[in-house]
Design a binder for these strands. Structure first.
Length: 560
RNA sequence: UGGGGCGUAGCCAAGUGGUAAGGCAGGGGAUUUUGAUUCCCCCAUGCGGAGGUUCGAACCCUCCCGCCCCAGCCA
């Protein structure tokens, strides 16, 4: 297979095949898709799949993708979410241009079409209570019963519907229903509700309306008004397609879009449900929608995940119709791949252990050179300070190490990255027996990290001079849930109590503090980090986006 | 038991009659001043199962099994 073919095939899926075939058959002048979020919560990485699919298809086939807010239920929707969603879609790297719409833009037209339906005998006002409607809907195996109001005359229906609109009735008093088939095997066709009475302030239309269209009624017609060619949604709407088509077939709409369904994203150790995410926020289990442990777009952004990594992840998992649960490791791989390629390297000590180089002249220090990216010489170098007192990582020292531990321990020699070989001579402990300091010696001949006599060390460690290191707070994250398949119904039981660890006594090299706010970095041997907005000039805070791949840790834990 | 979908490796996922792509994970090795990166190699006699059609079946036919969704005036 040629490289070009591979390129063209990458990211292919059944929906793109359909779009391409339709275009080749000249079914449309151009492809028009849409991403239709309901502004009742923040976007999560499951939405990112839909966004990338809809906007991606538009891009690839020279079409356009609309951003349309499905704001048909003022009881749950808020302006905050409308703003957040736009911010998130943009951050993901997609642009709707002039094509920002709201289902509420079409309320007048939708109402007029509902009257058409009534006139055609295809819709009626039902006075039954919500309970009665539920009871008469039947079950999965038994047909429903017709409403006693089903055969009401056109004029009466029109009058009642207009009075519903005028706000004459309380919530729940009446609904407008499509007149389809109460015996249909497809429950969505058993006279579905088209309009319900909701007396609530709508973020965009205020108190102008007392009735609001249901998703089923608003969605297809909105698609038609906008000239959407391919209306792409998730699997659970497959059952709604007959209703989508039923309405479009009977209304004087300007176009008849086609609906296609794909499997939504599921991830191990993750719950992607607006209900659960909302409860996590409201219940105080996380600090907010943008808590770095949240699978929201806002959360992963704050965590330091690049939009490119998300896009790459979505490209790799593909689009199909089978329910699936993607291994979190796949996302992690994509994050590391992008970050490894793009981030400058820095030195930081998460849990400092003081080391005194006994044979290094007191009161002196020197400048060494560190490279910014091992695979990219153009990234340049930066100076780092070395002196008699330094900090190393506590985890890099073991007083009584197992055989496969080749970092520092009494009598052992290791390399300090970019600096010297040092040998541990003495372990200093406090009254309770904790190691509080190491006394080491260095070999002046190994400056830069090379031994002239060719001798080898098994480890290279990061370090910071006590003189120039700056304090910082570092936040480490693990999965929010400890269960690989957390249950939405009882998510609190699956919460990981160790999902956040705060290190208040970390040290960073001066170049980190001097760096720009948003740019992620690699702290060598530790992982990828990004500055958190909680930072103040006096106290910098960093989030660990993700650790480096750690085969040593894997080996240790794997053999236990 | 009604209607709609889906079953290809531990996890995603191509392939839709010509003899099982790719990625992640995993295993092995090389290089390495990050136990990182990079680079090699291995990883389905098998496509939910059983029959059938065919020179030939993951792809076609029949029956069976399993999983998901639907009984909101949510989307």
């Amino acid at each position: 297979m040629t490289a070009e073919l591979e390129q063209a095939d990458a990211g292919r899926d059944f929906i793109r095949d359909i779009v391409q075939a339709d275009l080749e058959a000249n079914k449309h002048a151009g492809v028009v898709t849409r991403f239709p979020p309901e502004p009742n919560g923040y976007l999560h990485i499951g939405h990112a799949k839909s966004i990338a699919l809809n906007f991606g298809i538009a891009q690839e086939f020279g079409g356009k993708c609309h951003l349309r807010f499905d704001d048909t239920n003022p009881a749950r929707e808020e302006q905050e979410y409308i703003d957040a969603i736009q911010r998130d879609v943009r951050w993901l790297g997609f642009d709707w241009g002039e094509n920002l719409f709201y289902a509420s833009d079409y309320f007048d037209q939708l109402f007029a079409w509902a009257e058409d339906l009534i006139r055609a005998g295809l819709a009626y006002v039902d006075d039954q209570s919500q309970d009665d409607i539920r009871l008469s809907r039947g079950t999965l195996t038994e047909p429903g019963k017709n409403s006693p109001f089903r055969d009401r005359g056109v004029e009466e229906n029109l009058d009642l519907f207009r009075r519903m609109k005028a706000g004459e009735f309380p919530n729940g008093a009446r609904v407008l229903r499509a007149r389809i088939d109460m015996a249909s095997g497809n429950i969505n066709l058993r006279d579905p509700v088209l309009y319900r009475i909701i007396h609530a302030e709508h973020p965009r239309t205020g108190k102008a309306w007392s009735i609001y269209p249901s998703y089923d009624y608003a969605h297809g017609q909105s698609d038609a008004i906008e000239g959407i060619t391919h209306s792409i949604c998730t699997l659970e709407f497959e059952d709604h397609r007959p209703l989508y088509d039923w309405l479009l077939d009977r209304l004087p709409v300007p176009s008849h879009p086609r609906q296609y369904e794909f499997a939504r994203l599921n991830l191990t150790y993750t719950l992607l449900s607006k209900r659960v995410l909302t409860e996590l926020v409201r219940g105080g289990h996380v600090s907010g929608w943008d808590d770095p442990r949240m699978p929201t777009i806002a959360g992963v952004r704050r965590r330091g995940v690049p939009a490119e990594a998300l896009r790459e992840f979505i490209r790799r998992i593909g689009v199909a119709k089978s329910n699936s649960v993607v291994d979190l490791g796949m996302l992690e791989f994509c994050i590391r791949e992008v970050l490894n390629r793009t981030t400058p390297r820095r030195l930081a000590v998460l849990r400092p252990l003081k080391v005194v180089i006994e044979n290094y002249p007191e009161g002196e220090s020197e400048e060494l050179e560190a490279i910014n990216h091992p695979d990219d010489p153009s990234a340049g170098t930066r100076p780092i300070r070395f002196g008699r007192e330094i900090y190393i990582e506590r985890d890099d020292f073991m007083e009584d190490p197992p055989k496969k531990f080749f970092r520092l321990s009494p009598g052992k020699e290791v390399r300090l990255r970019y600096a010297y070989f040092i040998t541990c001579r003495e372990v200093v402990k406090n009254a309770s027996g904790d190691v509080v300091e190491l006394r080491c010696t260095y070999d002046p001949a190994t400056r830069g990290g090379h031994a002239p006599d060719g001798r080898k060390v098994k480890a290279t460690m990061h370090w910071l001079s006590a003189e120039t290191a700056q304090p910082a707070e570092i936040r480490l994250y693990e999965q929010l849930f400890s269960n690989p398949s957390p249950t939405a119904a009882n998510f609190a039981a699956d919460l990981n109590p160790n999902s956040l660890e705060v290190l208040r006594d970390a040290r960073i090299e001066p170049a980190i503090a001097a760096g720009s706010d948003a740019a992620p970095m690699q702290f060598e041997r530790q992982g990828y980090f990004v500055r958190d907005p909680d930072s103040t000039p006096e106290r910098l805070v960093f989030n660990r986006t993700i650790g480096l791949r750690d085969t040593f840790a894997k080996e240790v834990t794997g053999k236990k």
